[in-house]
Design a protein around this nucleic acid. Sequence first.
RNA 1: GUCUCGUUAGCUCAGCUGGUAGAGCACGUCACUUUUAAUGAUGUGGCCGAUGGUUCGAAUCCAUCACGGGACACCA
Length: 503
Amino acid sequence: MPLSNKYIQQRIEKAKILKEAGFNPYANNSQRNTNIEKFLNVNSDIAESEEKRDENRHYIVSGRIKLMRIMGKASFVKIEDESGMLQVYVARDNLPEGFYNTIFKKNIEVGDIIEVGGYPFVTGQGELSLHADSLSLLTKSINPLPEKFHGVTDKEIRYRKRYLDLIMNAEVRKTFQIRSRVISLTRRFFEDKGFLEVETPMMHPIAGGANAKPFVTHHNALGIDRYLRIAPELYLKRLIVGGFEAVFEINRNFRNEGMDATHNPEFTSIEFYWAYKTYKDLIEITKEYFGYLFDHLDLPTLLPYGDMKVNFDNFQEIPLIESLTTIGGVPVEVTQDKEKIITYLNDKGITVKPGMNLGQLQGELFDAFVEEKLIDPTFITEYPVEISPLARRSDTNPDITERFELFIAGREIANAFSELNDPIDQLSRFEGQMKAKDSGDDEAHEMDKDFVEALSYGMAPTAGQGIGIDRLVMLLTNEHSIRDVLLFPAMKPLNSEETPEEE
RNA sequence: GUCUCGUUAGCUCAGCUGGUAGAGCACGUCACUUUUAAUGAUGUGGCCGAUGGUUCGAAUCCAUCACGGGACACCA
C-alpha cells in the first residue's frame, strides 16, 4: 500500500493541521524573485561590509528544506533549489505572532518546499545567509527524505527512484547537466557546420544499419510487425540520395541484447552523413568536435577516467592489422592466416565460433588484444570488408574498407566510414549477410532491397559517422556505468510491479 | 546466460559458532536566539527480500526463487 507507513501518516496529519490553520499545503502563489545562486553571487560583498548585513536589500527565495537546526526562539534552515543551497536564519520575533512556535516548529519539516523572504547577512561563522522576515509553505512533503548525512547510496533505489537520487545527491544533477550540455553542444557544432538536423523513423519494417537483435512491436491497424530501430543509418543515407548534403540525427536506438555497465536496451547516438567527403575528413571533424566540446565544457585535455589519464591532445591513427602487431603483440604472420589466428586465440584460452572468416577473426584478435589498450583517442582504420557490410572498399585494397572506429579509454566511442554507394556491391554484401544469417548468425544484417534501390539512383560519395552519446558522457563525467548517465536506466520490474498480461 | 557478493526500522549500517532485534540519523515530547551532520534529556518505531526445509527453537544453517551490485560471456 502506498502512503501507508507511520511517518507518512504523521506528515499527512501535519498537512491537515496546516490547512486548518489557513496554510495551503500545496500553495500555488510563489513570489520568488531570485534563485539561490544569484542571491549568493549578488550579495557576496556583504562579507566585506562593516555591518555584515544589508537590511535595505530584500529577496524572496524558494527551495526544499534539506536541514533544520531548531533552537528555542530561532532556527537555521538549509534550503536548496536547482542552483544551490542557502542557509536561512529564522527567528521567532521576526515572524507573525505565534507562527514560529505553532506553525514553523511543529508542522514544517525537512523535505518541505518553502518560500522565504528576507535580507542578506553573514553569520558569526562567516556564512552568507538570509535573515527571514517571512516564511511560507509551498509544498508539503509527506514522505520523509533519506538520512541527511549518508543520503541514498543504494544503487537500486537511486536508479529506480531517480527523483530521490536527484534530491539527495547534488553531483548527480551535475552529471545530467553535463549530459544535456554535451547534446546541446553537439547539435550546435553540426548546425554551425551547415548540417541539417532530421528525424527518421523509430519503427522500421526492416531492422537495418547495424548488426543487432531488434525489439518487435505490432501495428494493429495494418496487422504487421515493426522493429524498433537499431540504427538510423539507412534512412539518413536515403536522404543523401535525395539531395541533402549534410544531415545528422541525435536520437535513441534500441537493441534487444544484454544489459551491463556499457549497454542499455535504449541508448542515444548521433549519426551524421556528409556528402562529397571521405572518412579522412571525418577524422578531422572528429578531432575538431572533441576540441569544441572540451573548450565549451571547460574540461582539461588531460582528462582523468578511473585510474587512467586520457590525453585529448594525443589523437593517434593506426590501421587495424598494424595495431594487432604493434599494440596487441600478435605476430605478423599470424594476422593474415585463418588457421594460425584460431590456433593463436585457442592458445590464449579464447574459443571462436566455427566458420568465421578472416576478417571476423582479425576482429576477434583486435577485441582480445588491442581494444583495452587504446587509452588516448585512437582512430583504428582499414577495417576488413567482411565485418563492414555498409562501408566503401578501399580503392587500392578490395579486402579492406575506408572505415575507422575511434577508441578512447579502452572503449569504442565512434564508428565511421566512407559510405558504400555502389548498389551492386551493396546488394552482394547484403547477400553475404543473408548467407551468414542462414548459417546461424542471427545478428547478420538484414537485406534491405528498398535501400539498394535508393542507391541505384546514385548517392553522392559520402562519409558517415555514429557516436555513442552515453559512452561519451561517461567519459566526460568520469562515470563507469551507463546507468549513471541515463536518468532512468532500464531495470527489471519488481514483483509488485508485474502486470498480469498473459492469459 | 555463468560465477560471485548483497537484501535487517523511512535512510546508513551492526547483529559471533542458531536462543526470538540493535546503533546513528530521521520522527514524537521537553529545553535552548548565530547553528554547521547544532546540542542535552526522553520516547515511539521491525512480516530481518519471498517460499520451503533442518531444528525444541532460524535474521543466523540448507534449498529454491525475486531484485540489485561486481566480474565474465554475448554485444557496440
